[in-house]
Design a protein around this nucleic acid. Structure first.
Lengths: 349, 349
DNA sequence: CGCCGGTCCGCAAACGTTACCAATTCAAAC
DNA sequence: GTTTGAATTGGTAACGTTTGCGGACCGGCG
C-alpha cells in the first residue's frame, strides 16, 4: 500500500537520500555514474516523486487555480482546455473550481484554492470579479481575471486579460464598409454592460470616420440571448423605411436570433442582408449557419492569461496591475457578402 | 511573505500545536473554552490550513484527477462541471488534465496526476481508455472511465459509468412507435463503434418486438459528423420508394445533417418526416432547431461516476470491477410528431 | 490517604522532500 | 609533505500538519 519513496531508493542503491534527490533534480554536483545508477533503480522500482512533499518544502506548489462560473458553456470549455495546455507546458497543473456566485460560494472557492496553496489564480469573468481584489492583497496570491471588461476592472484594480472589444467593434465596421455597405445597424447587448459599450463605441467610431450610417437598436432584455436577438431584429425589420444592408450583432447569440427572424420574414441572408456576429461560438460554424463573426481567439487569450500569471508569480510584483487586450480576428463564413462583388479584399476561403 | 501556520496560532493563543490542531478538527478531547479561544485567534489572523501538509501526513490528498481528451466540446464541459460540483460536495477537489492521445501524452497525464497523489482518477472515454488498466493495478489508484462503451471496456476490465446505449435505442423505437410511426430508418455512427452497435441493437430489438419496420443506413465515414449525417440522409431520401415517416439518428450531429438535407430537399420536419436524435448536445436546444432527442443525462452520469470513485477510494477494493449504466431520457422538442395527432402520450411542453 | 477514571493538554515522531553545512576523497600546486 | 581546492557525498534540520502516548489535574470512591 505504502508507495515507494526516496528513502527506499537510497537504501536500494546504497547512497543517501540527498544524493537521490540530487540525481532526480539534475543537480550538477553528482557524478554521472551514481546518477545513472540511482535513476536506474528509480525506473526499476517505479518511483514517482511526491509532489506534495516537494511543494511543502519549496512553498511552491506549481498549481494554478481556475475559477469558472457554474454555467457550462462552450466558451469556457475551450478556455479551460487552452489554459491547461499552456500551463502544463510551463510546468503547472490546473486545479478546477466552479464558483457558484448565486450562492455566494465564490468566496469559498477562493478559500479552497488558497488552502491548496495554489501559486496563482485564473478567474473567468463574472459579476463576482470583485473577489479578485481582496485575495490579491498581502497574504494572497496573484490573480488574473479573464475576459473581464475594462470598465468593470477599472474599479477593482485587477490584472485582466480580455479581448479588445472596442477594436472588435471597430474591425466590424471597417469590414462591412470594405464590403461596400454604407447603411448598417448595430444590435446591442445588455445595456450598460461594458462589453456592449465598448463594441458599440468601436463600431460607431469607425463608422463615423468612414462615413457609414448606423442605426442602433438597444437590447430590451437584461441578458443577451437568441430571444433578445429575435426581438431586436423584428423591431429593426419592421421600422418604416428599413433599408439597412448589413447588421452587426454584438454577440453571436443575437446574430442567431437575427438569422432566425430573417428566415421567418423571408429576408435572404446574405443576399438581402449581411449579418456579422461577435464571439465565434461553436454554433456559428454549423454548416447550416456559417455565421461570419469576430472571433475572441480563445487560445491566444488563454495563453496570454497564463503567461501573465506566471510573470506575476515569478516576480512577486503586487503593486502594479496590468491589463492585456487581445486583438480579435474576423472569421469569414457565409453570412456577409460584398455589395459590389469585387469589393471584398478577403473573400471567404 | 511566509503565511501564518498552526505554530503561530499556538504561540498567540498560548497552547500547543496539538491543541490547535484539535480545535480545528473538532476533536472531542478539548474544552469548549480553549477551542473557542483558538478558533477566534485563527479568524483574527486569517489562518488557513495548509492542505499540502495535511495530505502529506494523512496520505489522502482529497484530490481527484480528471482526464479529458484535448478536444473541447460542450459535452465534456458539462461533464467537468457536474463532476466538480459533486466532488466538492463530498469534500474533494478536481485536478484537471487534458490528455493528448495523439501525442501519446495520455501516459504522462497519468504520471502527473499520480505524482500529485490524487486519490482517484476520472477519465472521459477515449480510444486510449486502455491506459486505465495498468494504472489501476497495485501501486496505482482507483480509476473510473466515463462514457465508456461496454464493448470497449469488456477487454480492459475498467470501472465504467456510461449511458445505457442499448436502452436509449430501445426507448427511441418505443417512442416513435407510440407516436404512430410504423416505417422508420436508423442512421448509424462509425461502423464497429460500440456506441453504434448498442444503439442500433436496442432500436432493432424494440422495433422487432413491436413490429415496426426499420431501414438501416450504415455510416460511410470513419467518424460521425454533420457531414456524414448529410450523406446518409441523401442516400436514404433518394432511395426509390422512400416511404419512412421517421428517422432515428444515432447521434445529434447526424440528426443535424438530416435536418439540413431535408431542408434542402423540401421535406418538412416534422410534418413529412420526424427526426429523433441522441446525445442532447447544446445545438439541439437552439430555437431554430429544437431537436427531439435522447439525453445522456450528464449530471446524473457525472454524479454516479464520482460516487463510484468515492466508494472505490474508501473501500480500497481493487479486485472487483463495476459498471454502471445510466438510463437516458427523452427530451421532447419539435422534430417529432404523432402520426395520428392523439397518439402522443407525452406531448411536448 | 491511596487509587481510579476521566478530562484536558503537550511532547515528539512521523509524512517525503529539499537545502544547508559538513565530511571525505583525490589530485594538483606549493 | 603539506596545503589548497574541486568534486562528490552524507547528515540533519527544516516545511506544516496529524497522532500516539503519556502527564497533569481533579473529583469521587473505598
Amino acid at each position: 500500500m505504502r508507495s515507494i519513496t526516496i528513502k527506499d531508493i537510497a537504501r536500494l542503491s546504497g547512497v543517501s537520500v540527498t544524493t537521490v534527490s540530487r540525481a532526480l533534480n539534475n543537480a550538477p554536483e553528482i557524478s554521472e555514474e551514481t546518477r545513472e545508477r540511482v535513476l536506474r533503480v528509480c525506473r526499476e522500482q517505479g518511483y514517482r516523486t511526491n509532489l506534495l512533499a516537494r511543494s511543502l518544502i519549496s512553498s511552491r506548489s506549481h498549481l494554478l487555480g481556475l475559477v469558472l462560473p457554474e454555467l457550462a458553456n462552450p466558451y469556457h470549455a475551450s478556455l479551460s482546455l487552452n489554459i491547461e495546455l499552456c500551463a502544463r507546458e510551463l510546468g503547472y497543473q490546473i486545479m478546477l473550481c466552479c464558483g457558484r456566485p448565486e450562492k455566494g460560494q465564490m468566496k469559498s472557492s477562493f478559500d479552497l484554492l488558497l488552502s491548496q496553496r495554489v501559486d496563482g489564480i485564473l478567474m473567468a469573468s463574472t459579476s463576482d470579479s470583485a473577489y479578485a481584489l481582496p485575495q490579491n492583497g498581502p497574504g494572497g496570491v496573484p490573480c488574473v481575471v479573464l475576459g473581464a471588461c475594462a470598465a468593470e476592472s477599472t474599479a477593482s484594480r485587477a490584472n485582466t486579460v480580455s479581448v479588445d472589444n472596442f477594436m472588435g467593434g471597430y474591425m466590424a465596421a471597417e469590414y462591412l464598409f470594405r464590403l461596400g455597405h454604407r447603411n448598417t445597424a448595430y444590435l446591442g447587448l445588455r445595456p450598460g454592460s461594458s462589453t456592449h459599450t465598448l463594441r458599440n463605441q468601436g463600431f460607431l467610431t469607425a463608422a463615423r470616420t468612414l462615413g457609414m450610417a448606423v442605426e442602433v437598436v438597444e437590447n430590451p432584455d437584461p441578458s443577451s440571448t437568441i430571444e433578445s436577438g429575435c426581438r431586436m431584429a423584428r423591431q429593426l425589420f419592421r421600422r418604416p423605411g428599413f433599408r439597412q444592408t448589413a447588421v452587426f450583432a454584438a454577440s453571436d447569440a443575437v446574430a442567431l436570433g437575427v438569422i432566425q427572424v430573417a428566415d421567418e420574414l423571408g429576408l435572404a441572408i446574405p443576399e438581402r442582408l449581411s449579418v456579422l456576429g461577435f464571439d465565434n461560438i461553436e454554433y456559428a460554424a454549423l454548416p447550416n449557419i456559417r455565421l461570419t463573426t469576430i472571433s475572441q481567439n480563445t487560445p491566444l487569450l488563454a495563453r496570454s492569461a497564463v503567461r501573465l500569471l506566471m510573470e506575476l508569480i515569478e516576480s512577486g510584483e503586487d503593486a502594479v496591475y496590468t491589463r492585456k487586450l487581445v486583438t480579435p480576428s474576423i472569421i469569414r463564413r457565409a453570412t456577409c457578402r460584398p455589395l459590389s462583388p469585387d469589393k471584398d479584399p478577403h473573400p471567404p476561403a
